[in-house]
């Protein structure tokens, strides 16, 4: 690992003052960044430690639940307010990584984690995300773990987070601090599709800091489920995952939220499928129809083409669990 300058500015303002310099990276839990630095994928000159900033609180606001960017994944997953109000988030968090990593990883860091694409990680391989213009190793390569939605010829990497899939489904907002003050972004718009600039994972601009997320209140807590399909039962990234949340009254779906992981460069919200469920009975048939609708526009690249079949199967299964049909 390259040497770097280690900084620990005392306040959020002091952090904002230093992070807009090129070659500067923020470190919180470090579970992804240190890994990337060890592999020479990330080579910061300056590392800004923000762990001491007061951004760990989980609180109820007028409109929802606020979670500080530095709240640990483990803490959020065990928090009573989260369990009561947003169980889908807790389920997704518990499906990710390992207990040790969840004790280190923060909510903000989880959002900022980079793809696990093997070509991205190996500095001898072509990767447009790591070195723009170098090509995409996965496009015609071993792309079993890769995207079926929203990919480009430049990049078919997927975002690896479970937490983010649930936050996308739950209409969360990202709260971002910058030199000019705070701004809010719908969670579904925070991460980007690769297009011609796969090196950019999200909408955060230089000098900005995620300070928290806010999840609006909803009626999903009774009928939520996070289903993650992976190559082993735990401690593995998703082949496909689905966050499903239903608001059911008298057997009829009032509202539905669906998002997928392991299928796109960002948590993949399934708006059409959600709409198709509204006003319908919570039945297996309806779930399967919605799942098929969700797959419109999906594209396989060879090794990952199984996701075209696994995807809808997982959506339907997750909805069944959410509705209590399993």
């Amino acid at each position: 690992m390259k040497q770097f300058q280690y900084l620990r500015p005392a306040t959020q303002q002091a952090v904002l003052d230093v992070i807009n310099k090129p070659g500067t990276k923020i470190i919180a839990g470090g579970t992804n960044l240190v890994d990337l630095m060890k592999r020479g994928v990330a080579t910061p000159d300056k590392l800004v430690d923000i762990n001491h900033l007061p951004l760990k609180n989980i609180t109820i606001t007028k409109t929802g639940l606020h979670i500080g960017a530095l709240a640990l994944n483990s803490v959020v997953s065990e928090n009573d307010l989260v369990a009561k109000k947003q169980p889908l988030l807790a389920m997704a968090l518990k499906a990710g990584a390992s207990p040790q990593l969840r004790n280190m990883a923060t909510v903000g860091g989880n959002m900022m984690q980079r793809t696990r694409c093997g070509y991205f990680y190996d500095t001898t391989m072509p990767c447009n995300k790591r070195v723009p213009g170098s090509g995409c190793g996965a496009y015609e390569g071993v792309n079993r773990m890769h995207a079926i939605f929203g990919g480009s010829e430049q990049c078919i990497a997927v975002h690896p987070s479970d937490m983010c899939v649930s936050l996308a489904a739950l209409d969360a907002e990202v709260i971002i601090a910058g030199k000019k003050g705070e701004r809010r972004l719908p969670f579904t718009e925070f991460h980007r599709l690769p297009g011609d600039h796969p090196e950019m994972d999200n909408q955060l601009t230089a000098g900005e800091l995620i300070i928290g997320v806010e999840i609006p209140d909803n009626n999903f807590s009774k009928n939520s489920y996070y289903l993650k399909v992976r190559d082993r039962q735990s401690y593995a990234f998703a082949l496909v995952s689905v966050a499903a949340a239903l608001d059911i009254e008298n057997g009829i779906i009032q509202h539905a939220r669906l998002a997928m992981g392991g299928v796109a460069h960002k948590p993949w919200r399934l708006f059409d499928a959600e709409r198709s469920l509204i006003g319908k009975p919570a039945s297996e048939d309806n779930f399967k129809q919605a799942a098929q609708l969700a797959m419109q526009g999906a594209k396989g690249y060879g090794y990952n083409s199984f996701k075209l079949k696994l995807g809808p199967a997982t959506i339907a299964e997750a909805l069944k669990h959410a509705a209590g049909l399993v």
Binding site: F4, Q5, Y6, L7, R8, P9, A10, T11, Q13, A14, D17, V18
Partner: peptide
């Protein structure tokens, strides 16, 4: 000077 707080420490 740029950082508004003098307590900010550059540790290297």
């Amino acid at each position: 000077k740029q950082s508004s707080l003098l307590t900010a420490v550059a540790l290297t």
